[in-house]
C-alpha cells in the first residue's frame, strides 16, 4: 500500500494528467452528439467482429427457414408425382392421356407444438380450416407417418400423434403385404408395435413396414419403420412385432397434410355397403 502511494506520488504529474484527460474526454463524449455517435459507432465496429462470429452461428438457426422453403418445394413436387394420382385405367390398353386423376393432395405445415413424452401425445400445426385442413386428414413427415388431424380451428389444427395409444394405423409388411394394426405402447417414442399379423408367415428382423393404403387417410407405401423384434404371442395366433420408426417425431419441424380427394366418395360407398348388408 505504501509502495502504491509512493508510486502515485512519484508519478503524480502523469496521474493528474490522466484524470484530467479522462474528464475532458468524458465531457466530450457526454455532451457532443457527434462525438457520442461516432464513439458508439467505433465501438460498434469493434463489436462488429463479435457479431460476425455470432451471425455465423445464428445463420445456422435460419436453416429452419431454408428448410421451410425446401419443404414447400417438396410438397409441390409430391403433388406432381405419379403416386399422388389415382389411376382411372379400366382397360388393359395403355392410354397415356387423361388417365390420371389427382387423388392425394399434399401441402406443407409447420409444427407449432409437439410432445413425445406424454401418454397421449398431440401435435399442433399452423394450418387450419382456412387452408383446407379437415378432420381426420393424414399427416406425414419427411420419412413416415406422423398422425391424423383431430380437431381443426380457423388457423390451426391438432394432430393425434402416432405416439398416442389411441391411434391405430393400418400398416403392412412391405414384402409379404400382410397388414395389421400399428400402435404405440406409450413407453419409447422410437418404437411402435405391429399386431394382427398372422403367425404363419415369415417375419424377419429388418423387414420394412409401410402404410397399407386401406384407410382412405394415407396413401399406400409410405414407409413407417423396420422390424426389430418379432415374437409370436403364445395365446393367440398373431405376431407381436416391434417396429423401429424411421420418423423422429421428436425432431419434427415440418409435416405434410394429406388430402384424399376421393375420401367422401369412398366413405359414402363403404357406409352404404355396411348399412345395406
Amino acid at each position: 500500500m505504501n509502495n502504491l502511494i509512493r508510486f502515485i506520488e512519484r508519478n503524480h504529474h502523469f496521474f493528474i494528467f490522466l484524470i484530467v484527460e479522462t474528464a475532458a474526454l468524458l465531457l466530450l463524449f457526454q455532451y457532443n452528439n457527434y462525438h457520442r455517435a461516432t464513439f458508439i459507432n467505433k465501438l460498434g465496429a469493434a463489436t462488429g467482429i463479435v457479431y460476425e462470429v455470432s451471425d455465423d452461428v445464428v445463420d445456422f438457426f435460419y436453416l429452419r427457414k431454408a428448410n421451410q422453403e425446401f419443404a414447400e418445394q417438396n410438397a409441390h413436387i409430391l403433388n406432381t408425382l405419379k403416386k399422388s394420382y389415382k389411376t382411372n385405367k379400366i382397360s388393359y390398353r395403355e392410354i397415356y392421356d387423361s388417365v390420371y386423376e389427382k387423388q392425394w393432395r399434399f401441402f406443407v405445415a409447420s409444427v407449432v407444438s409437439n410432445s413425445v413424452n406424454k401418454q397421449n401425445n398431440y401435435l399442433t400445426i399452423d394450418k387450419g380450416r382456412k387452408h383446407g385442413v379437415k378432420q381426420s386428414m393424414g399427416i406425414t413427415g419427411p420419412n413416415g407417418v406422423v398422425g391424423v388431424v383431430r380437431h381443426v380451428s380457423e388457423n390451426y389444427s391438432t394432430v393425434i400423434s402416432l405416439l398416442n395409444p389411441n391411434f391405430h394405423l393400418s400398416a403392412r409388411l412391405r414384402n409379404t403385404k400382410y397388414f395389421g394394426s400399428l400402435q404405440w405402447d406409450g413407453i419409447d417414442p422410437r418404437f411402435c408395435w405391429l399386431d394382427d399379423i398372422p403367425n404363419h408367415i415369415d417375419v424377419n428382423v429388418g423387414d420394412s413396414v409401410e402404410t397399407s393404403g386401406f384407410s382412405a387417410i394415407f396413401p399406400g407405401q409410405i414407409p413407417i419403420g423396420k422390424v426389430v423384434e418379432a415374437s409370436k404371442d403364445g395365446r393367440n395366433n398373431f405376431y407381436h412385432i416391434k417396429v423401429k420408426l424411421f420418423m423422429h417425431i421428436q425432431s419434427l419441424t415440418h409435416v405434410y397434410v394429406i388430402d384424399n380427394e376421393f375420401k367422401t366418395e369412398i366413405e359414402e360407398l363403404e357406409n352404404k355397403t355396411i348399412t345395406y348388408d
Binding site: 474528464a23 466530450l28 457526454q30
Partner: peptide, 22 residues
C-alpha cells in the same frame, strides 16, 4: 474548458489543452 463553454464543445479544447499542459 473555458473556451469550450463558449464554443459549445465541452471537452474538446479541454482535452487538447490539458495535453499540451502535460
Amino acid at each position: 474548458l473555458s473556451i469550450d463553454m463558449f464554443a459549445n464543445t465541452p471537452g474538446l479544447h479541454a482535452a487538447s489543452t490539458a495535453f499540451i499542459g502535460f
